[in-house]
Every structure is written in structure tokens, then in C-alpha cells.
Simulated assay, not measured.
Amino acid sequence: MFGLAQDIAAPASRKVFQQVADTLIPADQPAEFNQAIMEFGAIQCTPVKPDCLFCPLQSQCYAFQHGLISELPVKSKAKAGRTRYFHYFVLQYEDTLYMRKRGPKDIWEGLYDFALHEADSADLPARTVVDTVEALGGRIDLAQVEEPVQSLRHVLSHQKVEARFHPVKLEAPLTPKALATAGLLPYKASEIESLPKSILITNYISNIGF
């Protein structure tokens, strides 16, 4: 209607459209106006095939008058979601599991999960498992490396997490130095239950019955 070329999907454009809307909404009938706009968009000015030929506003419509019906409004395509491959090392010594609190600037900030190795694929060589565990201060023999006990998927708004959980039975508890380096802490079952966790981690723990 107004020939605005700002991207309607961009948060920065909200102020522009809000300013125009504020000049149109009648103060005494805002609800009726909003309902009318929604109905007009659902019946007359539809997103894919607007019924411009029989539109009562065509003489005032910038897009219709300038042949820009297919160009306006401008809406960018949503970013394609990426897939991330999380390999969790579930380090366990007797009745203790080692967990860590996730840091900022990533998904599930402040929630608890296990030692994590993010890879480029869902497959992880046994040698990498051994090297990662040893880097965390644990000891494990290559022959004892197990297949992931579970594979879980979690879909977020712009990314999909394919998680593999690798159970690791430690021969000895992790040392304080190793814990500090890896950012891990030991927890009993009763303590883990009260920790804030993502639904992915909660489901895994529930499935293994720890």
C-alpha cells in the first residue's frame, strides 16, 4: 500500500511499520481495525495471489500502481538450519557422573550437560574417543570403547542437534586438576535430578535410568 521496501522479516524494520500503523489505527476502535486488517490479508490481499482486480484500495496502492505486486512486500528467506553433531562423553566412576555448566553465546546457556566433543559428522572414531577422554584426565583402553548407547535428535529454530552419547566407565575418579581443566564436577543421581538441563540431556538420563 505504502511502497515500503524494508524487509518485513528483519527486526530492525519493525519500527518503520509500527510508525505507519500508528497513524492508521483509530484510537477508539483499535480492536476492530486489527481484525479488519487480518481479514483483509486473509481474503483480499493474500501473500501469494492478492485479488488486486477487485480490490477497493487499488487506486491508493503503491504496489498496484507501479507494477510491484510481486516485489512488495520485501521478505527475506529464513536462513537454512544447520546440523550440529554433538558427541557427549558420559564419564562415570561408580555412582558418580561428571557434568559441566554450559557457557554463554551458544544454545542452552547455563544448563548442564556432559563433556562435549563437537564434530563434523555423526561418526566418531574410537581413537578420538580415547584421546578425548585422556585429554579430560580419564583413562580408557581402546578395546573398551563402546558404541554410542543412544542417539538423540533435538530441533531448534535455526539448527538441529544430532547427539551421540558415549558411555565411559572410568577406572579412577578424575583429579581436581582434571576437573578444573575440563570444567567438570562430580554429581550423584539425587544431585543431577535438581540440575537445570536441556530436554535432550533430561531425556538421556531418564532413558539410562541413572
Rank of each mutant, 00 (worst) to 15 (best):
residue 145 V to F: 07
residue 40 F to H: 02
residue 63 A to I: 02
residue 92 Q to V: 15
residue 13 S to P: 01
residue 205 I to H: 00
residue 103 G to Y: 13
residue 207 N to V: 05
residue 24 L to I: 06
residue 103 G to K: 14
residue 61 C to R: 00
residue 177 K to C: 05
residue 3 G to P: 03
residue 8 I to K: 02
residue 210 F to R: 01
residue 18 Q to V: 12
residue 140 I to E: 01
residue 145 V to Q: 07
residue 22 D to G: 03
residue 182 A to P: 07
residue 7 D to C: 06
residue 158 H to W: 08
residue 51 D to F: 09
residue 16 V to D: 00
residue 57 L to N: 08
residue 76 S to H: 10
residue 60 Q to H: 12
residue 108 W to G: 09
residue 159 Q to P: 02
residue 78 A to H: 14
residue 197 K to R: 15
residue 209 G to L: 12
residue 148 P to A: 08
residue 47 P to D: 06
residue 162 E to R: 01
residue 87 H to M: 11
residue 122 A to T: 12
residue 176 P to D: 04
residue 43 I to E: 11
residue 183 G to L: 01
residue 188 K to N: 04
residue 170 L to I: 07
residue 26 P to T: 04
residue 69 I to M: 14
residue 125 P to W: 14
residue 159 Q to W: 02
residue 128 T to D: 11
residue 101 K to F: 05
residue 117 H to C: 15
residue 186 P to V: 14
residue 145 V to L: 15
residue 94 E to P: 04
residue 60 Q to S: 11
residue 120 D to M: 15
residue 23 T to K: 13
residue 194 S to N: 11
residue 37 I to V: 13
residue 71 E to G: 03
residue 55 C to Q: 06
residue 63 A to F: 02
residue 189 A to W: 04
residue 175 T to H: 05
residue 92 Q to E: 14
residue 177 K to Q: 10
residue 128 T to F: 11
residue 94 E to C: 10
residue 90 V to Y: 00
residue 89 F to T: 01
residue 45 C to E: 02
residue 48 V to N: 09
residue 156 L to E: 08
residue 17 F to R: 00
residue 111 L to N: 07
residue 94 E to R: 15
residue 12 A to M: 07
residue 68 L to A: 07
residue 64 F to I: 05
residue 182 A to F: 03
residue 5 A to R: 12
residue 95 D to C: 13
residue 167 P to C: 04
residue 180 A to G: 02
residue 65 Q to E: 12
residue 76 S to F: 12
residue 14 R to P: 01
residue 141 D to P: 06
residue 165 F to Y: 05
residue 83 T to Y: 05
residue 129 V to A: 05
residue 66 H to Q: 14
residue 169 K to G: 04
residue 180 A to N: 05
residue 85 Y to M: 08
residue 20 V to F: 07
residue 204 Y to E: 01
residue 185 L to V: 06
residue 8 I to E: 01
residue 210 F to W: 06
residue 44 Q to S: 07
residue 10 A to T: 04
residue 182 A to K: 04
residue 41 G to L: 14
residue 125 P to H: 12
residue 81 G to R: 08
residue 152 L to M: 09
residue 132 T to R: 10
residue 162 E to G: 01
residue 191 E to H: 09
residue 2 F to V: 09
residue 207 N to H: 14
residue 25 I to L: 09
residue 114 F to T: 03
residue 59 S to G: 08
residue 43 I to R: 08
residue 33 F to I: 04
residue 7 D to Q: 03
residue 15 K to H: 11
residue 193 E to C: 08
residue 150 Q to H: 13
residue 192 I to D: 01
residue 17 F to E: 01
residue 173 P to K: 04
residue 208 I to M: 05
residue 54 F to T: 07
residue 65 Q to G: 06
residue 150 Q to E: 07
residue 125 P to D: 15
residue 32 E to P: 00
residue 96 T to K: 10
residue 73 P to S: 09
residue 82 R to G: 05
residue 163 A to M: 03
residue 180 A to F: 07
residue 114 F to K: 04
residue 144 Q to R: 15
residue 109 E to C: 15
residue 185 L to D: 00
residue 21 A to F: 09
residue 101 K to D: 13
residue 199 I to W: 03
residue 94 E to N: 13
residue 97 L to G: 02
residue 208 I to R: 02
residue 199 I to V: 12
residue 146 E to W: 11
residue 40 F to I: 05
residue 195 L to Y: 00
residue 75 K to E: 13
residue 116 L to C: 15
residue 56 P to N: 09
residue 176 P to I: 02
residue 197 K to V: 04
residue 74 V to D: 00
residue 157 S to A: 10
